[in-house]
Amino acid sequence: MHFDTFSDFLAMGGYATYVWGAFGATFLSLFWILFSSLGKRRQLLKEIEQKMAREERIKKAKTMENTL
């Protein structure tokens, strides 16, 4: 599709509302997925770190029991 002016490009042949709305919805969805994934990743890493620390405490407690 060939546009003579920039305003013709923005108007998208009369379909600007649909075209730019679709672009907006797509990018909004992509950003939502990105930030949601980053948040879940951070939460998962925190949970793993807590579980590892708990296992280490349990291991130390068992070795302390054997010294009594």
Results as ranks from 00 to 15, higher is better:
S7Y: 03
S7I: 01
D8E: 13
D8W: 06
F9C: 08
F9I: 03
L10P: 10
A11T: 04
A11G: 10
M12L: 10
M12G: 00
M12Q: 10
G13W: 03
G13E: 00
G14K: 01
G14L: 02
G14Q: 05
Y15N: 15
Y15T: 11
Y15V: 14
A16R: 04
A16D: 11
A16F: 04
T17L: 07
Y18N: 09
V19P: 01
W20E: 08
G21C: 02
G21A: 06
G21F: 10
A22M: 11
G24F: 12
T26G: 00
T26L: 12
T26S: 14
T26C: 07
T26M: 03
S29M: 07
L30K: 00
W32A: 14
W32M: 01
W32E: 12
F35L: 11
S36V: 07
S36N: 08
S36Q: 09
S36E: 05
L38T: 08
G39L: 10
K40V: 06
R42D: 13
Q43M: 01
L44N: 15
L44Y: 08
L44P: 01
L45P: 06
L45Y: 13
L45H: 14
K46T: 07
K46C: 08
E47M: 02
E47Y: 13
I48G: 03
Q50K: 13
K51R: 14
K51G: 00
M52H: 12
R54D: 12
E55M: 12
E55N: 13
E56Y: 10
E56M: 04
E56N: 06
E56K: 04
E56T: 01
I58T: 05
I58M: 06
I58N: 00
K59G: 00
K59C: 03
K60M: 07
K60F: 06
K60P: 04
K60A: 11
A61V: 03
A61P: 00
T63H: 12
T63R: 13
T63A: 08
T63C: 04
E65I: 02
E65H: 05
E65R: 03
